[in-house]
Design a protein around this nucleic acid. Structure first.
Length: 835
RNA sequence: GCCUCCAUAGCCCAAUGGCAGAGGCAGACGACUUAAAAUCGUCAAAGUGUGGGUUCGAGUCCCACUGGAGGCACCA
């Protein structure tokens, strides 16, 4: 190498680090992704990535999510849309608080340091965010509106306080929503969740259960079916009937819910949830031995946790309460038992037990030696009636009703209808439905969250903080004991807690709980419309123009937590007149996880891959491209299986091709190398639909294909000056800008253009270039290819049939078999079926 | 126990019911080089987890099974 050609070498070298340095400041100037410019007439589109929790720097999971979200967002920008693609931080929550306790710091400092770091990483990662629309949920300007939301719910009767047995994490020392208990463990820290009787705040999500379930149908096709089925499972609607049983020695009847009212004649006992008020009352009015046995049993039940309860092979336990219920259809006396297999907070906390036709009731009857009466005749494979009373299992299938008075001879559905009619006529019951979904417990006994804007007054009770006194600012953490102790740390901020009642003026106290952070994230997508407004949570008019979110991108881990809550809050805001739509996210893409060596990355497993190291080693573009190219976006990526180095190699190859273009910009491609033009325009035809259908990996493969064709043309007959070469190279640069913005921008400059490849539209495919005059037709015999011939594209069916039948190879394959049928699909195929 | 989803070259993955291969990784060979790297090029490699069925024709649709991933679960 001589000194003279050294600078030229640098010019022809793909230098990842230099390119990254070069373009960031240019883009800062150019701001191609602003969405709030006045007079912007482009059609609007709202693309949203789930916002991160600032628990440290960005990791590989973020890198995947934001790479994929960026492909979609940049695609629509390139198509000429005014795309709103904002970002923010879900910055309240336990990790900040725990980290702060560990280090003796204010959670605020830890949180905002992490936000700054993530923000800088996102800029380097070249995310196409609109940096004018940023929100941070722990900013008072945000959580003031969180408090507004709470009060809207409160005033509508959708936020309320009640005392009940709640999920309690002994490690986090706070309550958990049902959705935050996974397999009996705390979602956050994996501690075994226990139950505790506490007064807590709830959002009445159950009021919306039907709509939350039914409206999932409107998302069909636009949301992953997996998420739809998870939500359906979670809401868990079952249809059945309420039936009222008189209780001996009690004025009020007890109502039970059953999905099998047809089996009412087979009820042989009743079971009430051991931990319910009803059980305690029935026991209290019973004889002393029962009282004692019940107290002992209840003690045992309280000590068991969800893990034990979930064990399916757990033997049935219970206590006979010495009381009796009267079967409303036949007047039979049914003994009442208390057991923990009946849940206090589902249905009415009491069931009618039909051991012949329910697995759990059957097990209980066997354990307690209670009678079993068959009322549904179910036949086995041999056609012989099965009798659970003498067998070892209940029958749960449909069958003909027996031993059931007026229901005898009916099938299941007819029997259900008839018994419902009978019960309704007597005022003893009615058809109804029940949900697995419970109300959303939103209060937390922790510091780092939105204070609940309620004041408790001895005179007035719960008093909402007046709007003009919002926000209720979180008191400084200084001097507060943040360590979890079961009551909110805010209770220690005496000056803050003690206030005068806004209604009557006497000394009162603030509510010291904070809100579940899922409240913060349940409506944040609306706040991006005016992240800095001090007047409104979000402007109703802007919401009409931008919302709902056209495309939401995020992990499947939020399938039932965040996505269900956001749907619920949207429906409430709709009903309050703030929104004209009922579903927040029109289209949803769930990206998979990034694994390493077959399992999720974790420090303890020792398979953590640091994003920053990957970026340093391969460059931003190569990492982003690898995320898109690895496979379908919803599948997990095993980092051990993919090749960021290969991606970098490809990017360099594409970049070099642009460097080899020897014509001036603005050159018409007409008359250029025909083969390359064909490759370019078949790419242009295929690319858009692939991206719109999330087939990013295939889209990248198509770009690679085009780069290969481009290389061949440059090195071959066409040469670097051919107009088709320029056309192909510009197409590559534009398409590549969705995946590898730095490389694409640099290519764009090499091709002689001003910065801003992100805004350069891809050309429409010229389909006339793709018209072929002839095509290779195949001739099959019994589905196997036997011959091929080149035919005109407009060949008639008859002509193609003749051609195929005349082929020697076809004749040989037919042999002496008789031709049964000849299928012709001109011009591509003939299939000859023999007998 | 109930409900989803997945299975294609050594690996990651393509394939409107119509010739199993678009693309990549790894591999072999060649060109360039004193040599290597880089680059450019050429090649090899599976009959689609198993067994049935529908069809003129099945990787694709249906059923069963095996293996893997996920959700719900004492919810009456």
């Amino acid at each position: 190498m001589t000194e003279q050609n050294a600078p030229e070498m640098a010019e022809n070298e793909y230098d990842v680090a230099a390119i990254q340095e070069k373009w960031l400041p240019v883009w800062d100037e150019l701001r191609p992704f602003d969405s709030g410019k006045a007079g912007d007439t482009r059609p609007k589109k709202y693309v949203l990535d789930m916002f991160p929790y600032p628990s440290g720097d960005l990791h590989m999971g973020h890198a995947e999510a934001y790479a994929l979200g960026d492909v979609i967002s940049r695609y629509w920008v390139q198509k000429g849309f005014n795309v709103m693609h904002p970002i923010g931080w879900d910055s309240f929550g336990l990790p900040a608080e725990n980290a702060a306790i560990k280090r003796g710091l204010d959670p605020k400092g830890w949180t905002y340091d992490n936000i700054a770091q993530q923000k800088s990483s996102m800029r380097r990662y070249a995310c196409s965010f609109d940096w004018d629309r940023v929100l941070v949920t722990s900013d008072p300007i945000y959580y003031r509106w969180n408090q507004w939301l709470f009060l809207e719910f409160y005033n509508k009767g959708l936020a309320y306080r009640k005392n009940s047995n709640v999920n309690w994490c002994p490690s986090c020392q706070t309550v958990l929503a049902n959705e935050q208990v996974v397999q009996g463990l705390c979602e956050r820290c994996d501690s075994v969740v226990t139950k505790k009787a506490l007064t807590q705040w709830y959002f009445k999500v159950t009021d919306y259960a039907d709509r939350l379930l039914d409206d999932l149908d409107t998302l069909e096709g636009n949301w992953p079916s997996k998420v739809l089925s998870m939500q359906r499972n979670w809401i868990g609607r079952s249809h059945g009937a309420d039936v009222q049983f008189e209780i001996e020695g009690r004025t009020e009847p007890v109502t039970v819910f059953t999905t099998r009212p047809d089996t009412l004649f087979g009820a042989t006992f009743m079971v009430v949830a051991a931990d319910s008020a009803l059980a305690a009352e029935l026991a209290a009015d019973s004889n002393p031995e029962v009282q004692k046995a019940f107290t002992n049993y209840l003690e045992m039940v309280k000590q068991s946790n969800d893990i034990e309860r979930l064990a399916t092979d757990r033997p049935k336990t219970g206590v006979d309460l010495g009381r009796f219920a009267i079967n409303p259809v036949n007047g039979e006396k049914l003994p009442i038992w208390a057991s923990d297999y009946v849940l206090a907070d589902y249905g009415h906390g009491a069931i009618m037990a039909v051991p012949a036709h329910d697995q759990r009731d059957f097990e209980f009857a066997k354990a307690m030696n209670l009678p079993i009466r068959t009322v549904v005749d179910v036949k086995d494979e041999a056609g012989i009636s099965i009798d659970p009373a003498t067998g070892d299992a209940p029958t749960t299938a449909a069958g003909t009703l027996i031993n059931s008075g007026p229901l005898n001879g009916l099938g299941k559905l007819e029997a259900i209808d008839k018994i419902a009619t009978i019960l309704e006529a007597d005022g003893k019951g009615n058809k109804t439905k029940n949900f697995r979904l419970r109300d959303w417990l939103i209060s937390r006994q922790r510091y780092w969250g939105t204070p609940i804007p309620i004041i408790h007054c001895n005179n007035c009770g719960e008093v909402p903080v007046p709007a003009d006194q919002l926000p209720v600012l979180l008191p400084s953490a200084e001097g507060l004991d943040l360590k979890p102790k079961g009551t909110s740390p805010l209770g220690g901020a005496t000056d803050w807690v003690n206030v005068d009642c806004p209604k009557c003026g006497i000394p009162a106290k603030r509510d010291t709980d904070t809100m579940d952070t899922f409240v913060d994230s349940s409506w944040y997508f609306l706040r991006f419309l005016s992240p800095n407004s001090t007047e409104v949570a979000f402007p109703v008019g802007e919401a009409k123009a931008w919302a709902p979110v056209d495309q939401y991108v995020g992990g499947v881990t939020h399938a039932i937590l965040h996505l269900l809550y956001a749907r619920f809050v949207t429906k409430v805001l709709h009903d309050l007149g703030y929104l004209d739509f009922e579903e927040p996210f029109t289209r949803l893409l769930n990206q998979g996880m990034v694994l390493m060596g077959g399992s999720a990355m974790s420090k303890s497993r020792g398979n953590l891959v640091a994003l920053s190291e990957q970026l340093d080693e391969h460059g931003v573009d190569a990492v982003r491209l690898t995320m898109s190219f690895a496979g379908p976006p919803e599948e997990d990526i095993d980092w051990a299986d993919v090749s960021p180095a290969g991606s970098a190699k490809f990017l360099a190859r594409a970049w070099r091709a642009a460097n080899d273009v020897k014509s001036a910009p603005g050159l018409s491609p007409v008359g250029g190398n025909a083969e390359l033009r064909k490759a370019t325009h078949s790419f242009l035809r295929d690319f858009g639909p692939l991206i719109e259908n999330f087939k990013f990996n295939v889209g990248v493969a198509k770009i690679m294909e085009l780069v290969n064709a481009l290389r061949k043309a440059i090195d071959g007959a066409a040469g670097g000056a051919d107009p088709a070469v320029r056309e192909a190279a510009e197409t590559v640069a534009k398409a590549l800008s969705l995946f590898a913005p730095y490389t694409a921008e640099d290519m764009w400059q090499k091709l002689g253009h001003q910065p801003g490849v992100a805004l350069a539209k891809l050309a429409e495919a010229d389909l006339s270039l793709l018209v072929e005059s002839s095509i290779v037709a195949i001739a099959q015999v019994d589905g196997k290819v036997r011959d091929k011939f080149e035919v005109p594209v407009d060949i008639t069916e008859d002509a193609l049939r003749e051609l195929a039948l005349a082929s020697d190879a076809v004749k040989k394959a037919i042999g002496d078999k008789e031709v049964a049928n000849v299928i012709v699909r001109a011009p591509k195929l003939v299939n000859i079926a023999t007998k």
